[in-house]
Design a protein around this nucleic acid. Structure first.
Length: 806
DNA sequence: AGCACGCCGACT
DNA sequence: GTCGGCGTGCTC
């Protein structure tokens, strides 16, 4: 009998996507436990790679097992829960286990590998070129790039003779920050005596002793000590040598800085609707019953306050809380709100943190020093134990789905984790996803509705302006008279306006007015987008860019200029009409720099501007009391996208932006400009009637057999040549047809909306199904085949429940 | 992925 | 005859 470990190795391929059995050497018995990162030999050259221990057990296996080389850290990084969750998600989403584990951990835990050549017998080295390589050292980094390929045979021969060794290295980038702390060892009296005994010339030592007397027995970091005592590192070293103080290295956290200090907040009184929702959630929390609530509440109905009070309740039971918000709403204001209630119990996890900060926040959670985690998508994997509540705010947001491998949906993961912990999930939204709302309809989730705003101020009144009439009457295609008049009123009354330009699927491109030429990306079938800040044309798919030409490359005319409406143009036109208005523009160009978004919003909040013009990014989370007008300049560009969720997205967007108007005692107004005023998504968004939108949209989904009535899987397939993809895609569909259930529907293959991206042609296949084990099996098989296909240059991606079909 | 093995074409 | 090109297959 011997101790063995099942280990998932860091080789993301289908053939290696399973645990491998390793021998646990004597020295690691009782040390090695599941969830640990280890270094193991792998392959016939025994290169060293990172692995994750998934189980430890006894075995009588006679096969020759290789031993684990070492453990990377003494504490496991994955809990049994996360190991199991990783496997489940890997299976479900057609990704590799190891990719899933890595996605659960801070970036720094992704191993970096290096390879070196070690010289054992310098005397045996005869070839001059190889001698030169080793010149005066016996360890050389071996990167294919900087070692002369011609030397390869010689190096190999030396290796076989034992003159050289190939050394593989797994670099652990998870580094703990250390701070040198200085601890006084003597009493104030003793320091005083020492100081009197000093020679008159020992000025620095005297200063050091005086400061030590002041410090008492408190330890202090050496950097702070040096600064405050006015001494150097060497003075401290001398003091330590004399036994006056002790210096030791202590772990420190890199804590993300906040711009403003946290103000402590206290719970607000809940209104009866809030109280009712709170009571139901807390009853489930107290009963430790795994249950999902859908909290449907209009903007301003006080969902966040309910979240905070439920979290407080969970914490009082010594359990922990996880709160997910979309990256875009994870603003300093939001962090302040949560930290203001729970202080240092909170860990924040979002993309703005440095690798070191993120690692440290992760460790604080892991060590139970933080009991509340607030974060964006990937925070759903926070290493919390004993979770009592998981909140998914703005649950309809598509950014909860990770659209690259490893694909996962944070909302689904939240529900899985809650099941494990017997915890409660609260999905919150003013405009729930059809999927979630439908589950509430069938009582899988409990629907909780908040129909009033918490501060009893009325919802804004909305007006839909038919832009077709405006154009017919010779009006402007950006601003209707109705909107302009209302903006003017606001300026007169010293109130603020927010104008949103819906730019999704609608970019600003260049067109020659003479010949109609539009500059296209050389690598993608897509018009290039104009960026005025950099004065360049840029492709939004591959990033290719070039200067804006002064004349048309086709016909030489100088009448080549931007087409369509950009935020810049809106700003210009607005300034012409209201010369004295102060305007802030927020779009990708003005918010590119780090912190720019916060700065602009703060300015607007301090009423340093009358009008805020922006794209989708202004739709969420803004809360300014003096905004009494919201204008949506082109409500319907999202409506025309070839995606079954186009109506849902449009409805959500309009509803959200409308919610920005009139939050305090002032009543708000919303102007929705559109070419489709009769469209139900627009008409119902005007009325803020989510429930009617839901039933109407459900009928349409039913008719067309889309989610939530059907599950879906999208297969995207690409190749450098169009005829090759097409052929492979048709073959794939033929192959699939024999394996699927009768009521499963295959759409396509069809070229994607943008046929060519990054010089590759794309086809997509959409599969709609109810319940189909044959399909599931076929897709897993397909994942294995993908590797063979890639030899022919074909790339393939399987996406369960795609959030975008474009 | 990354490495070794092995089977064919261009050379001393 | 051999060297080395890359296709094929395996990794506890």
């Amino acid at each position: 009998m011997m101790q063995v470990a099942e280990i998932v190795v860091d080789v993301p391929t289908m053939q290696t996507n399973r645990p491998w059995t390793y021998l646990i050497p004597k020295s690691l018995i009782n040390i090695l436990v599941p969830g640990m990162r280890v270094v193991v030999p792998f392959g016939n050259s025994n290169r060293q790679i990172q692995g994750f221990v998934v189980t430890v057990h006894e075995s009588t296996e006679t096969a020759q097992l290789k031993p684990v080389i070492s453990v990377i850290e003494l504490n496991p990084v994955l809990t049994p829960e996360l190991i199991q969750l990783g496997n489940e998600l890997a299976n479900r989403n057609f990704v590799f286990m190891v990719s899933m584990y890595q996605a659960m951990l801070p970036n720094v835990m992704r191993a970096k590998y290096s390879k070196q050549l070690r010289l054992n017998q310098p005397d045996a080295l005869k070839q001059p070129e190889v001698q030169a390589m080793f010149a005066d050292r016996d360890l050389v980094d071996f990167n294919a790039g900087d070692v002369d390929m011609a030397l390869l045979p010689a190096l190999k021969a030396y290796q076989q003779q034992g003159v050289l060794d190939v050394v593989y290295q797994v670099d652990n980038r998870a580094k703990v920050k250390l701070v040198r702390m200085i601890t006084p060892l003597l009493s104030t009296n003793e320091y005083d005596q020492l100081r009197h005994a000093l020679r008159a010339t020992a000025k620095k030592q005297a200063r050091l002793l005086t400061y030590l007397m002041k410090l008492g027995s408190n330890p202090q970091s050496t950097t702070q000590f040096e600064k405050q005592a006015g001494v150097t590192a060497n003075d401290i070293k001398v003091a330590a040598q004399k036994g006056w103080v002790e210096i030791e290295e202590v772990e420190a956290y890199r804590i993300p800085k906040l711009v403003e200090p946290i103000k402590q907040t206290t719970p607000l009184t809940l209104n009866s609707e809030q109280q009712d929702a709170y009571d139901q959630i807390v009853a489930a929390v107290n009963g430790q019953t795994n249950h999902v609530f859908l909290l449907e509440g209009v903007t301003g109905s006080g969902k966040t306050e309910i979240y905070l009070q439920v979290i407080a309740q969970v914490l009082s039971q010594n359990r922990t809380a996880l709160m997910l918000v979309p990256e875009i709403t994870l603003t300093p204001q939001m962090v302040h709100r949560v930290k203001g209630r729970f202080g240092s119990m909170v860990a924040v996890m979002h993309s703005g943190l440095s690798d070191g900060e993120r690692y440290d926040e992760w460790r604080r959670v892991k060590r139970h020093e933080a009991q509340v985690v607030i974060g964006a998508r990937s925070a759903v994997f926070a290493p919390l134990d004993n979770i009592g509540i998981i909140i998914v705010d703005e649950e309809h947001e598509s950014s909860y789905k990770q659209e690259e491998n490893p694909r996962y949906h944070a909302r689904d993961v939240a529900i899985l984790r809650a099941k494990y912990h017997n915890a409660v999930v609260v999905l919150g939204s003013a405009t729930p996803s059809l999927e979630s709302r439908a589950r509430a309809q069938r009582n899988r989730y409990t629907l909780l509705r908040l129909t009033h705003r918490a501060l009893a101020n009325p919802l804004p009144t909305s007006e839909v302006v038919d832009m077709r009439d405006v154009i017919k009457q010779g009006g402007d295609d950006i601003f209707s008279d109705q909107l302009l008049k209302k903006i003017g009123d606001r300026i007169d009354r010293n109130e603020q306006s927010v104008l949103m330009l819906n730019r999704r699927g609608y970019a600003n491109f260049l067109m020659c007015r003479q010949c109609g030429f539009v500059p296209m990306c050389p690598n993608c079938d897509l018009a290039m987008t104009v960026h005025q800040d950099t004065k360049r044309l840029e492709c939004h798919i591959c990033g290719a860019n070039q200067p804006i030409p002064n004349e048309c490359p086709m016909c030489g005319s100088d009448r080549i200029r931007p087409y369509g409406t950009g935020t810049q143009k809106v700003e210009e036109q607005l300034q012409i009409r209201f010369p004295n208005a102060r305007i802030i523009r927020m779009d990708v160009d003005t918010t590119r720099k780090k912190g720019a978004t916060d700065r602009l919003l703060t300015q607007f909040g301090q009423k340093k501007a009358d009008i805020l013009v922006g794209t989708q990014m202004i739709a969420k989370g803004l809360d300014f009391p003096d905004v009494t007008l919201v204008g949506i300049l082109n409500a319907d560009t999202t409506l025309n996208l070839p995606d079954f969720r186009a109506s849902e997205r449009t409805f959500q967007l309009i509803t959200q932006v409308s919610g920005r108007a009139g939050r305090a005692d002032k009543k708000g107004e919303v102007v929705i400009q559109t070419y489709n005023p009769q469209h139900y998504a627009i008409a119902l968004a005007k009325q803020q009637d989510y429930e009617r939108f839901f039933s109407k949209e459900m009928q349409i989904r039913h008719t067309w057999r889309y989610a939530p009535y059907y599950y879906s899987v999208q297969i995207k397939i690409s190749h450098q040549f169009e005829n090759q993809v097409a052929k492979a895609a048709y073959q794939l569909v033929e192959w699939l047809r024999n394996k699927i259930a009768d009521d499963t529907i295959i759409f396509g293959p069809a070229p994607t909306t943008v046929r060519r991206m990054k010089n590759r042609y794309y086809y997509q296949i959409l599969i709609k199904f109810k319940h189909d084990t044959g399909l599931e099996k076929a897709l897993t098989e397909l994942m294995a085949d993908a590797q063979n296909l890639s030899k022919d240059g074909i790339q393939l991606a399987i996406d369960r429940e795609p959030v975008s079909l474009i």
